[in-house]
Design a protein around this nucleic acid. Structure first.
Lengths: 251, 251
DNA sequence: TTCGATTTGTTCGTATGTATT
DNA sequence: TAATACATACGAACAAATCGA
């Protein structure tokens, strides 16, 4: 019997991979907005003309990637950038005593400019393309710990201005998502140690000659499209970067 | 109908979770050694008196956690500490140019001692318990980049001596696995920046006043049992620590 | 080389349980 | 309570990879 999906499947992916790709395409196209429910599994199965088990297998992978969230009895939802998600998935600085808290952001500056070589390479845009540059000071326990230097392509956030940024009601990625429909789903970070420039060291209130942790982060949306390049300077006198691969809920 | 697994399942876990726990128990007990094949899925289904789909779901999770490896047509195997697995899962230092290579280990020293407070806390052993301490210098591209200070409880590696360590034919975790049946399956790392002590800075060949990246790693085996505590000092002039959560093979 | 047995991978269908509204 | 949606579990059939006869 002719199968609508298999018919167009010239690369001979398994059906569930094709279903996953089609769901991802719909997500990227904004067909279901963050926080919204997808059609039920049985409805999707009908649309794609596959069994419900095949749809479940596709969704399983998207849930594992934190792109979708399942709730028994309610439905399957597009993941939103809540504070919890930020805290447990995107924010990796913890106290040396093990404490985990969301930082308080203190806005420093908002500038427009042109992408330099580094920005362009990380963001996959032409050198010289217009960019927005935002600097923040993040505080933990009331004290400055992180200096953030954020660069995004103006093209992705056309009408973003200082006022909009400062008055946002959520996390930064929440703003990207709610106002621009840009959903950050993955980050890649490269860490090194360096002496902070005097200006930054001053903001971080470090003792003289205290090295800083430098984090260069690229944030991606669907299909590995870069969205944001962020350089963070961290005062690690009382805090650390936690990399916990696979805190499995195994038993 | 009476089900042998459900019968003993007083915590009302789903069946596949019970199966997963029983498989994990067998792994921890060394019933199937690293590199060996587990019984086939249909055989396991028979043993546990569940359907093959239930066994598959249990194994699915263990495969996702990199504890087991499936190979179509061959079987399901206990993951081994090959160089590839080390490179892509346990070793996170890459060149700033993006190059990825396994380090060459230069042995420095092997000592016996008693666990200090820090060691004891990280390893979950009593303060003062006997420990082994091994120091290595790791080279990338022929140049020293990482200084490793490894602490393990003597109790876990009773007859491990310098000669055995130096003459190992595999990675360090491969040695733990092959000779002591201890399978490292997860690591947790905390990173900070600091000025290296002169002795270490000398080994790393850094310019004066160059800060180092400090990595404190705890390695775990089954059931979140700590096995090793390792402090690494990294020269980040030409290298970085890569934290790439979810390099998904999505598409 | 071919063939058959074995093992995992994919897909379907069905039934029942559990949580939500 | 009833309807809906996800979660678990079972079984069957066939595909694809592997390996040895």
């Amino acid at each position: 019997m002719a199968n609508t999906l298999a018919a167009g499947n010239l690369t001979f992916n398994p059906l569930y991979k094709e279903v996953k790709i089609r769901i991802t395409r719909s997500l990227a196209a904004g067909e279901w907005k963050p926080g919204e429910a997808l059609p039920s599994e049985s409805r999707l199965a009908g649309q794609f003309n596959v069994s419900i088990g095949t749809v479940r297998k596709a969704i399983d992978e998207l849930v594992a990637e934190q792109i979708l969230v399942r709730q028994q009895g309610r439905g399957t939802f597009v993941a939103t950038h809540t504070e919890d998600r930020t805290l447990f998935y995107f924010f990796h600085i913890v106290g040396k005593d093990g404490s985990k808290e969301l930082p308080v952001t203190e806005f420093l500056s908002f500038h427009r400019g042109k992408a330099e070589a580094e920005d362009a390479a990380r963001l996959g845009i032409p050198s010289g393309a217009r960019k927005l540059r935002i600097r923040n000071l993040l505080k933990l326990g009331g004290k400055p710990v992180i200096f953030d230097d954020i660069v995004v392509p103006t093209a992705l956030f056309p009408d973003l201005d200082q006022d909009t940024f400062v008055k946002r009601e959520s996390t930064i990625y929440g703003l990207y998502q709610a106002r621009y429909g840009i959903n950050v789903i993955r980050i890649s970070e490269r860490l090194s140690a360096a002496n902070a420039p005097a200006r930054i060291a001053g903001l971080l209130d470090t003792r003289r000659n205290t090295p800083a942790l430098v984090i260069k982060r690229v944030a991606y949306t669907y299909n590995d499209t870069p969205v944001e390049y962020r350089v963070s300077w961290v005062n690690t006198e009382n805090h650390e970067y936690l990399s916990d691969l696979w805190k499995s809920e195994a038993r």
